[in-house]
Design a protein around this nucleic acid. Structure first.
Lengths: 109, 109
DNA sequence: GAAGTATATGTCCGTTTCGACATATTGTCA
DNA sequence: TGACAATATGTCGAAACGGACATATACTTC
């Protein structure tokens, strides 16, 4: 993982292992974060498609505006569990969920 | 969700909402549990394919035998996060992870 | 059926994640 | 620019999840 990417992730609250840590861990962590980013991005896309703000969205998933913002930002305090649950609460099917995760990650514009 | 299915899940430690709860919740919960079950099943399949026991497997993912058993049983104390992380630790790609989640759920034999 | 190995279940307690609230920042439009 | 809505960030106490350990049950092989 290059320096620029590491810094960007750390800025979001991620603590990415140093090079001297167990080799290979960085790759797994990166893969894990990518899963989160895909779910986060698609969640925001779905919300925007519905034309609603974060507050109504929070009501739907029984959460709060601030947590929605964190979800969409793939904050380090947000679990995959919560992202998946939120997707399901929006009616995303298991098949679609899988496609979201399987699809190649594209950096947000 | 029928009574038999509910009981079976509760036996595993799940607390499935009663009918009087917010309608639709049961379906979402069921979908969520199915995601877990798919990840749990495939995790066990991968381990068995490698021909190793739960203890060596636990070492690989930096966990313990008991937690591996719980993961494979999709125990309620196991998060999707942990299941995904474990898959990634085994080298499962994002694409494959997606396929696992997308594929229709089949009850274990 | 005893011994040995593999898996399952129950519990403990430190850590992570949660919703919620307060507040800051950003975006929009008059 | 000022005012208002939307989103982002920081923090807190409570709840959920983690690895680890002890122990129980299941599966083999003798």
């Amino acid at each position: 993982m290059n320096e620029a990417k590491r810094r960007k992730l750390e800025a979001k609250g991620w603590r990415v292992g140093d090079a001297q840590d167990f080799l290979g861990l960085s790759d797994q962590e990166a893969a894990f974060i990518e899963v989160k980013l895909k779910l986060a991005q698609s969640l925001r896309a779905k919300r925007q498609k519905r034309g609603i703000g974060q507050i109504p969205f929070a009501k739907i998933i029984h959460s709060s505006q601030s947590r929605v913002a964190k979800m969409e930002a793939a904050d380090s305090s947000v679990s995959v569990d919560l992202l998946v649950r939120s997707h399901l609460a929006l009616g995303t099917s298991g098949a679609e969920l899988g496609r979201i995760i399987a699809r190649p990650f594209v950096k947000a514009r």
